[in-house]
Simulated assay, not measured.
Amino acid sequence: MIDRLTVQNAVDALLAGNRRFTAGEPEHPNQDAARRAATAPSQSPFAVLFGCADSRLAAEIIFDQGLGDLFVVRTAGHVMGPEVLGSIEYGVSVLGSPLVVVLGHDSCGAVAATRAAIKDGTTAPGYVRDVIERVTPSVLATLAAGFTHDDDFINEHIRHTVDLLLDRSRVVADAVAAGDAAVVGISYRLADGTAQIVTARGLTGTVV
Rank of each mutant, 00 (worst) to 15 (best):
H157F: 08
I158K: 01
I158H: 00
I158Q: 06
I158F: 12
I158L: 06
R159Y: 11
R159Q: 14
R159M: 14
H160G: 04
H160Q: 10
H160L: 11
T161D: 09
T161F: 04
T161M: 09
T161K: 05
V162K: 00
V162Q: 08
V162P: 01
V162N: 06
V162T: 04
V162L: 13
V162Y: 07
D163K: 11
D163Y: 03
L164C: 06
L164R: 12
L164E: 15
L165A: 03
L165T: 08
L165I: 11
L165Q: 10
L166F: 02
L166G: 02
L166N: 05
L166M: 15
D167F: 06
D167N: 14
D167S: 15
D167L: 14
D167Y: 03
R168N: 00
R168W: 00
R168P: 00
R168G: 03
S169A: 12
S169R: 07
R170Q: 15
R170H: 10
R170Y: 01
R170K: 15
R170I: 12
V171M: 13
V171T: 13
V172H: 04
V172E: 00
V172S: 00
A173I: 05
A173S: 15
A173Y: 01
A173F: 03
A173E: 11
A173N: 13
D174V: 03
D174Y: 01
A175Q: 02
A175S: 12
V176R: 04
V176P: 00
V176I: 11
A177R: 13
A177D: 15
A177G: 14
A177I: 12
A178Q: 14
A178D: 15
A178N: 13
A178E: 15
A178H: 07
G179Q: 07
G179I: 10
G179R: 03
D180C: 05
D180K: 02
A182T: 06
A182R: 09
A182D: 01
V183T: 09
V183N: 05
V183S: 06
V183Y: 07
V184Q: 03
V184W: 11
G185Y: 05
G185P: 09
G185Q: 09
I186V: 15
S187R: 13
S187W: 09
S187N: 14
S187P: 01
S187Y: 11
Y188P: 11
Y188V: 06
Y188A: 02
Y188W: 09
R189P: 03
R189L: 08
R189M: 06
R189S: 10
R189H: 15
R189Y: 08
L190K: 03
L190S: 00
L190I: 15
L190W: 00
L190P: 05
A191S: 13
A191E: 15
D192V: 13
D192C: 09
D192L: 13
D192H: 11
G193P: 04
G193C: 09
G193V: 07
T194M: 10
A195P: 08
A195K: 03
A195T: 04
Q196C: 12
Q196L: 14
Q196E: 14
Q196M: 02
Q196P: 01
Q196T: 13
Q196G: 10
I197Q: 01
I197D: 02
V198W: 05
T199G: 03
T199M: 08
T199S: 12
T199A: 09
A200L: 06
A200D: 02
A200E: 02
A200P: 00
A200W: 03
R201Y: 08
G202S: 08
G202C: 09
G202N: 04
L203M: 13
L203N: 01
